[in-house]
């Protein structure tokens, strides 16, 4: 369902999993009942779910939401709340769009649920604008989710309403799912770098460089998902900073592309994308950059998801 033209009744419900992304999740697989349970619980709070939107298109959560939508026989919006993958709930678009993430339903691996909030957090803040309230709610939900994940030691499904379908276009990052699937097809079919070029050109993206991974620096936190690596061949030297997600690419020391742009590191042989923890020394890779998918509140989006939000001391550079 296209969020920009959605007119149906009812609300869109965000679905995703929060917590230690792959470790516990790969051991303790979701039973499949968690997403329906969450949506059902939201229904008891008066949320009339008529469509599903993924928290983030990147990684596991993009597909999980699509699967959940199928399970629930609900349409899935061609959109998400992050445009990519992001680590913290308060970076997600409702947090700066004046839409409260509360009440939110959390479901753990044993099907135990928690309902967070109901009253809006805005009451506690002297600045009662909707934006301040939704930001406070996002931070609050993020903290609760973290506390619960710590207590359970695994992951929880997070779900909440992002508002009525007719107004959802103001909140979400549109058209990311079809974009993802288009790129999936393109990459699966790609035989050479030059074959990719027309598709990149079409979106204003570019190949930042290719070569082999010549150095990797991982301080040993987060199972090797934080740090940087370099890519070199005969051409320029690329440096990619990562923190779960790829955050910035410098070419020969000049910052060429940063979050929230989409930075893809592809296996040079198969042209399939690699995750941060899959980067290995000497692997042949291609680094590409695509302009970010932008929500309507694009300035807030770039501010919330730019390098500074990850503690990196430079300005955002978008292709």
């Amino acid at each position: 369902m296209d969020p920009l033209t959605a007119t149906a009744h009812g609300q869109a419900v965000a679905l995703g999993i929060a917590g230690a992304a792959d470790g516990p999740l790969s051991e303790q697989l979701p039973s499949g009942a968690e997403f329906p349970a969450a949506v059902e619980r939201l229904a008891s709070l008066g949320v009339d779910a008529q469509a599903v939107v993924p928290l983030e298109v990147g990684g596991f959560n993009g597909l999980a939401a699509v699967a959940a939508a199928a399970q629930l026989s609900l349409p899935v919006l061609d959109a998400d709340l992050s445009g990519r993958a992001l680590p913290w709930l308060d970076q997600f678009s409702p947090a700066y769009s004046g839409v409260s993430m509360l009440p939110a339903v959390l479901v753990d691996a044993h099907g135990r649920t928690m309902v967070v909030g109901g009253a809006t957090h805005a009451a506690a803040v002297p600045d009662t604008t909707a934006e301040a309230g939704s930001a406070a709610d996002g931070r609050y939900l993020e903290e609760i989710v973290r506390a619960v994940v710590r207590a359970t030691g695994g992951w929880v499904v997070v779900s909440f309403s992002v508002g009525t379908l007719s107004e959802v276009a103001d909140v979400v990052v549109p058209h990311v799912l079809l974009r993802a699937s288009r790129w999936g097809r393109v990459l699966a079919a790609a035989q050479s770098l030059s074959g990719l070029q027309p598709y990149l050109d079409a979106e204003g993206g570019r190949v930042l460089g290719d070569g082999h991974v010549s150095a990797i620096h991982r301080p040993g936190v987060d199972g090797g998902r934080t740090g940087w690596f370099t890519v070199s061949a005969s051409g320029p030297l690329l440096r990619v900073d990562m923190q779960n997600e790829f955050l910035a690419v410098a070419i020969d020391g000049s910052m060429a592309c940063t979050t929230p742009a989409v930075i893809g590191v592809l296996d040079a042989r198969t042209f399939l994308p690699l995750r941060a923890d899959q980067i290995r020394l000497a692997a042949d890779v291609v680094v590409i950059a695509l302009p970010p998918s932008l929500p309507r509140r694009r300035d807030a989006y770039v501010e919330r998801t730019g390098p500074a939000s990850f503690g990196l001391d430079f300005e955002a550079v978008l292709p």
């Binding site: 044993h110 135990r112 928690m114 909030g117 009253a119 957090h121 009451a123 506690a124 609760i144």
Partner: peptide, 19 residues
């Protein structure tokens, strides 16, 4: 703040305590 959280852990009262 008027915030509340509903915990539903079935009959697992120990898990309820930790949540």
């Amino acid at each position: 703040n008027g915030d509340h959280v509903v915990v539903e852990t079935g009959d697992d009262n120990v898990r309820m305590e930790s949540f």
